[in-house]
Design a protein around this nucleic acid. Sequence first.
RNA 1: GGAGAGAUGGCAGAGUGGUUGAAUGCACUGGUCUUGAAAACCAGCAUACCUGCAAGGGUAUCGGGGGUUCGAAUCCCCCUCUCUCCGCCA
Length: 425
Amino acid sequence: MMFDIKWIRNNQKKFDAAMERRGIGPVAANLANLDDIRRNAKTKAQEIQTERNALSKEIGAIKLRGEDPSNILSKVEASKEAQVMAESELAEAEKDLENYMAKLPNAPLDDVPSGIGEADNVEIRRVGELPCFDFDVKDHVQIGEALGMMNFEIAAKLSGARFVLLTDQLAFLERALANFMIDHNVEKYDYTEVNPPALVNDETLFGTGQLPKFGDDLFRTEGGYWLIPTAEVPLTNMVSGSVINEDLLPRRYTAMTWCFRSEAGAAGKDTRGMIRQHQFTKVEMVSITLPNESPGELERMTKSAENILFQLGLPFRTVTLCAGDMGASAQKTYDIEVWLPGQNQYREISSCSDCGEYQARRMNARYCTKDGNIKGHVHTLNGSGLAVGRTLVAILENYQQSDGSVLIPTVLRPYMGGMETIKRR
RNA sequence: GGAGAGAUGGCAGAGUGGUUGAAUGCACUGGUCUUGAAAACCAGCAUACCUGCAAGGGUAUCGGGGGUUCGAAUCCCCCUCUCUCCGCCA
């Protein structure tokens, strides 16, 4: 069950209040009603089945004695019709309830600010000083193209709009960034590196909440696979359907993957440059925790992402998303926004979310005590650490020099064979 | 892609139409015995859901879905996955 229907039945006002914060009208009464129908149908179907089972057993016994069971057989015949009816009623009721619940978003935590959009998000900290330039600031497209290492025309020829082709030192930089991030997550924050499938099935996308509602944002193969929009999908679903011993929690996974997004609703947005692409590289973090540990884990995960920016010397700010701006699966989200001199604004580079038990319920991922007693659903969290393409953009723009070259952040140099600057050659 | 074999409780492994939710062994838990332990013996040991204040009662589940039957782990069909062989391939 995607939500705790018993809890909803008994706490209808609370549930509706939570949904209202996400801009969704009252649903609890509907849910309770659908559940009533479902339970009644179930009870009825079970009663009929009980009778049938008893009769069938009796027939077995009678036949064993070598007697004629035909009078009972006729009784069975009568109950058959009733059973078919009851069962189809039940199936319909269950489907109705599931379909209804599958489309509801997660309930925001109490400390999530109210609001309907970006403007209502709350900044909680700013780190790093904005760079000053004594020359005309260029954006990453100008810088990259001038270096001759960022090409949108060839990418458009090969694929179409919203693709980019990096060459030479920029291709190298992207690879170095990913390595740096993975190492950071593994060595400093105890994440386990994973190299997951990038094509997944329907069930997996349902588990993390992309399906059934947001299939339009994804690419799908003719064979019915989906290209992952983020490594959150495979990493989180690693524990689907399993019962994890509480001693083994928390579990932390990190992966570098390509991410594929159709950007269906983004026509006209960020059309210039690498900010919004159909394909981009991202290093992702996923944590699986005990229920009471997810809020602390969210802070930890966010710190991990922030620390990468800090080490790269990129200025950023962190905001708490308001209830209306969060993704459907999240119960609390921090966005980290990096400063982009070329746009003269902060832009999202990481999003860290505590999904509570929302995804765990969809995936049926639970935990148990040492002696195997199943206690409940785990909590799941995911966060970018970081979006590699956007990090590359941020480095180009923040570390640009007057001569068109780009300084490489110190921590990255070991990952680039000691190279200190990227310049045209 | 072709041919074959398989999927049963934590594990191993019986079971081909009628008290089979499922033998047996191992593991695990409790007990007896013992100074203690081992061994031996006895008992217990799945999950989900419905119903009930509770005790309890009930339903479903032997990879998944559908079918045959009064009755299916057992028969039929479809699918998934695993293994072996062949082909192809990074």
